[in-house]
């Protein structure tokens, strides 16, 4: 279970009209096994790009991303991903969506495994529903179950709760912590919400924009379950907002 992700001097530049544009500059980061790490930053800071590079959907211009001693080259089911947009296959039921990765990999006993993860996200009874019959929150739960079903070394989440309402969002955050506790997965969670980061993370990576750089990595030493309005939570939020504000 001791999976380790290391980012070493990761830089990403894009070709622009007037020369090249740096999206990410010299990112160095070590993610500890079973850590819940949040990445916050203003929009355009490259946090999504960073996550996509770890997923293998994008690539660094220089530097390297190493998972368990092996450099990342292209996407693979050992890095699960939950996207911001709804990403369920609309032609597949909940069960068939969760089975997808297992089926592609030719795993056995896929129904039982899928059902276990559906239960984990609290959707038992909805196995045969189609995505159009589910609410936004339920869709993202299925996406989480689907990403976990192939038992990835690390779970990447790109603002997964960005398009659900505030109450559902709080609920999903609590559920995610519960899932994290039960599966001991390393989770990399990108968000633009400071509140979300403080509520969820072991450590928060704060990024600046243009070029995207790591400003600071803050440890959140607050006992769970955290109270969203407690003094220490507020103090940390204040600190994060200051960091982000001074670098706009």
């Amino acid at each position: 279970m001791d999976h380790q992700l290391i980012l070493r001097n990761v830089t990403r530049t894009y070709d622009a009209e007037n020369g090249s544009r740096e999206a990410l500059e010299d990112i160095n980061l070590e993610v500890k096994p079973s850590e819940f790490l949040c990445i916050v930053g203003p929009s355009g800071c490259g946090k999504t790009t960073l996550l996509r590079m770890i997923a293998g959907l994008d690539y660094p211009t220089s530097g390297e991303i190493i998972l368990d001693g092996t450099p990342v080259e292209g996407p693979s089911p050992d890095r699960g991903m939950v996207f911001q947009e709804f990403s369920l296959f609309p032609w597949r039921t909940v069960l068939k969506n969760v089975e997808f990765g297992l089926k592609i990999q030719g795993k056995r006993d896929i129904k039982r495994t899928a059902e276990r993860y559906i239960e984990l996200v609290g959707l038992t009874g909805f196995e045969h529903s189609f995505p159009f019959q589910l609410s936004g929150g339920m869709k993202q739960r299925v996406a989480i179950a689907r990403a976990l079903a192939t038992e990835p070394a690390i779970l990447l989440m790109d603002e997964p709760f960005g398009s659900v309402d505030a109450q559902t969002r709080n609920l999903l955050q609590e559920e995610l912590l519960e899932i994290w506790k039960r599966t001991k997965k390393t989770i990399l969670f990108v968000t633009h919400s400071v509140d979300e980061a403080v509520y969820l993370a072991d450590r928060v990576v704060v990024m600046s924009s243009r070029p995207g750089r790591i400003l600071e990595v803050l440890a959140v030493d607050i006992e769970r379950p955290r109270k969203r309005t407690s003094g220490e939570v507020n103090a940390l939020r204040e600190q994060l907002l200051m960091l982000l504000g001074s670098h706009q």
């Binding site: 293998g56 292209g74 996407p75 693979s76 890095r79 990403s87 296959f89 032609w91 990999q105 192939t150």
Partner: peptide, 30 residues
Amino acid sequence: VPRVLVETGMVLGCIGHKKLIRHVALPYAL
């Protein structure tokens, strides 16, 4: 085919055009 579905397919192990077409694009296009 929406990009996010193609990328989901890739992340879940559809490596190469053949698998992506068969498991993602074809059902979407039906």
